[in-house]
Amino acid sequence: MSKRGYYIDKTLSCTSESFYRFMEIASTSELIQESLKENKELFSLVSYESTGDLIGIQLLSKLLLAIRESRVIKFVHENFYTGRIGDFEIKPYFLKEYQSRWYIIGEVDWDKKFWNFGVDRIQDLEITDKVFKRKKADLEKLYEHTIGLNFNEPKPERVELLFNEIQIKYVRALQLHESQIEGETKDGFTAVDLYVRPNYEFMQKILMMGDGVEVIKPKWFRDQVKKVLKDTLSKYKK
C-alpha cells in the first residue's frame, strides 16, 4: 500500500476476478468493523448464511504454505460422488472457494493432469520435503469456460437456455457466466446463450431454477436434464 492508496503488482497478483472479490470482502469487513465501533447493537442487524461447521478450514494455512514453497503433499481423500477413499500425492498449485467450500487444485503425477480435492474431505495431510518446479500453466484458463469445479470434462460448447419473465430478472442481475448473451424475448420467454462446459455444477444451477428455465441446446444436455426431472417426479407419485 502506498501513501496514496493501493496498487496492483500484476507479476504477483492472482486473477482480477479474485482480486476484486477480495477487495469486496475487505471493504464489507471494514464497513462492519467501523459500524460496530459506533454501535455494537448494529451487529444484530447483519445476518450471514449459516452453513454449519467449516470442516477442514484448519488445513488452509498448511496448504497455502505447501503452495507457496512448491512442496508435494500427501493425503487421504474421499470422493463423495463415487464413495471411493484413496491415497493421493499431488503438486499443489492453488486454492479455490466454491459455495462455502474450499478446494485444493494440483497436478496428479500419474496422469499429469490437474485435479481438485475438497479440503473438507482431506485426512492425514502431510507436507513432504519434496520440492517441485511449477509449470508455466495458465491456471486461469482451467476455469475459463467452467461453472463450478469440474474443468476436465465435458468440453465447452454453446448452450441455449430459455427463461421465463421472472427468472430472467435474476439472471440479468447475477450472470451465470461471463459469456452470457441475452437474445430475443418472445411470448414472455427470453433466450440466453452461454459458452460453457455443461458439467455437474451447471446442471445443479439449472435444476435449482425449476420451471423458470428450459434447456434448448445442446440436445444431449437437454435430454440429461429431462431424465433427472423425470426420475425426481417419479419419487413423488406415491
Rank of each mutant, 00 (worst) to 15 (best):
V131P: 00
D111Q: 05
L95A: 01
E97M: 07
H77A: 10
L125M: 00
Y103Q: 09
T82V: 13
I85N: 01
Y103P: 12
I90L: 10
E89D: 13
T82Y: 12
G83Y: 11
T128Q: 05
K130D: 07
E78H: 09
H77G: 04
F114N: 01
V131R: 01
D129W: 06
F88V: 13
K96T: 03
Q123R: 09
F114T: 04
D124Y: 00
I105S: 06
L125G: 00
F94V: 07
F80W: 11
Y98A: 08
N116G: 08
W102M: 06
F94H: 12
K91N: 12
Y81V: 11
Q123P: 00
I90N: 07
F80H: 11
V108D: 14
D124S: 05
D109E: 15
G106N: 07
D87N: 15
F80R: 14
G83M: 15
I122R: 04
H77E: 04
K113G: 04
D87Q: 13
H77I: 06
R121K: 13
D109G: 15
I127D: 00
K96Q: 03
L95Y: 03
K113Y: 12
W102L: 04
F80D: 13
E78P: 06
Y93R: 11
G83V: 11
G83P: 13
V108C: 12
F114H: 05
F88M: 11
T82G: 07
D109A: 14
N116W: 11
K91Y: 09
K133G: 02
K130F: 03
G118P: 08
G86A: 11
K96S: 03
V131K: 07
F88D: 12
Q99V: 06
F117L: 10
V119D: 04
E78N: 10
V108R: 15
I105A: 07
E78L: 13
I90K: 14
E78Y: 08
G106W: 07
I85H: 05
Q99M: 08
D129P: 00
P92F: 08
T128R: 07
T128S: 04
R84Q: 13
R101M: 05
P92K: 07
E107A: 15
E107H: 13
V119A: 00
V119P: 03
Q123W: 05
K112E: 13
E89G: 14
E78C: 12
K130M: 05
D120W: 03
E126C: 09
P92T: 02
I122K: 00
T82N: 14
I105T: 09
W110C: 00
W102Y: 11
